[in-house]
Amino acid sequence: MTKSELISKLQMQYKRLPGEVVEKCVDVILEGIASALDDHRRVEVRGFGNFSIREWQPRFARNPETGETWRTPPVNAVYFRPGKELKMRVNGRGYAESKFNNHTSEHSDHSEHIECREE
């Protein structure tokens, strides 16, 4: 699914809204997430997942061909961690029945906290 397909699906759901408003809305959401990440803020969307920034410190790497040593630049990478509901739905029933999951409810806030702790 591409962004334009996403927009047209939303437009079908919101037929009474002008199409441009739906389009703008999608941009506002994506920009909102992007600018928060730019400020090194985490983004948490319950049921969907969390976006966070991983800061990779510069390290010394070696070019295997020439043996040359160089310092890699520091990098800020965006990391996405799928939420409980997304994880389960992508797996259909398989994940829901697994032993790690059978005692937690799908929308339980608590269960999502447990997941975050692993980081």
Binding site: M1, K3, L10, Q13, Y14, L86
Partner: peptide, 23 residues
């Protein structure tokens, strides 16, 4: 509703095994 639907559309696409590409 719009924000919820936005994430819901992405989730259901992924649920069907279709990846989501946002330029």
């Amino acid at each position: 509703n719009l924000v919820e639907s936005f994430f819901e559309v992405i989730k259901s696409s992924l649920e069907e095994g279709d990846s989501v590409k946002l330029m």
